[in-house]
Design a protein around this nucleic acid. Sequence first.
DNA 1: TATTGTTATACTCTATAACTATA
DNA 2: TATAGTTATAGAGTATAACAATA
Lengths: 144, 144
Amino acid sequence: MTGKGLLDTTLGFHIARASVVAYDAFEQHIGAPHELRKVDFSLLMLVAQHGHLAPKGLAKMLSLTAPKLSMVLDRMQARGLIERKPDPQDRRSVRVILTPQGERLARKLEPVARRMEQGLKKLLSAADHARLIQLLSKLTAPTL
Amino acid sequence: MTGKGLLDTTLGFHIARASVVAYDAFEQHIGAPHELRKVDFSLLMLVAQHGHLAPKGLAKMLSLTAPKLSMVLDRMQARGLIERKPDPQDRRSVRVILTPQGERLARKLEPVARRMEQGLKKLLSAADHARLIQLLSKLTAPTL
DNA sequence: TATTGTTATACTCTATAACTATA
DNA sequence: TATAGTTATAGAGTATAACAATA
């Protein structure tokens, strides 16, 4: 009737539980204070890192459907964080870039994100934190 | 403009990406073939493990709000997998138990779940799989 | 007065199909 | 004919408030 429980060895269950912890940390440090969804933050940082990206690539990196990404881009554009510029090489496509305001926000969030990770390292040592990211990357590597 | 990217050291981002992999595996092995949501499966296994649980406890373990849990219970009850029995000790409360059909499904899903984990171990060694669960548990331990 | 569970409601996310414009 | 992006729509998830019954 009891015992150890199948879920204890089910990776997906543990990942789902960990998502809750990570989401709480995100909301506290970034989401609520800066009015950003997780996906907004990730998109901002990806564009900051790459300079410009097509919606196609962003959708893949963020595991979003194309329609959902359009809506996210609309929201961030309305807020003045990103711009859509025509792609000179393919007129069907678009280049998503950060506005100056978007770049300022991205820079501002870097130390905030580091503080968020510091907070998680109260639950997990720095070595565990690094190892955890390494193991999760193994799981997602085929996706890239 | 480029470099290594802040997200590479952001645990929440990696957890979110891993969720996609775990969810795909779940859908393929359990979700689609047995018409179960992740939360249905987890609930089924938790009740199988504990014999009976109150909605209050289930909501906590599954990180669901009470209203959402009510809806999940309605769905599973309509499907004949669980029953709500009055709690003899507190008439405000309820005991969620598995019906015989729910117990059969829970038993049937055990080897299926093990096969799902075997599939994930093609991406991750058995040792990595165990270590990953251990590290994720550290992150969620304070929640218990 | 507080707690358990439910109902009602609104907002967001997710997925699909249909459309446009370009290739 | 295929692809990039958008629009439209429906279904599921999530969160809050309000309620009934019991402690």
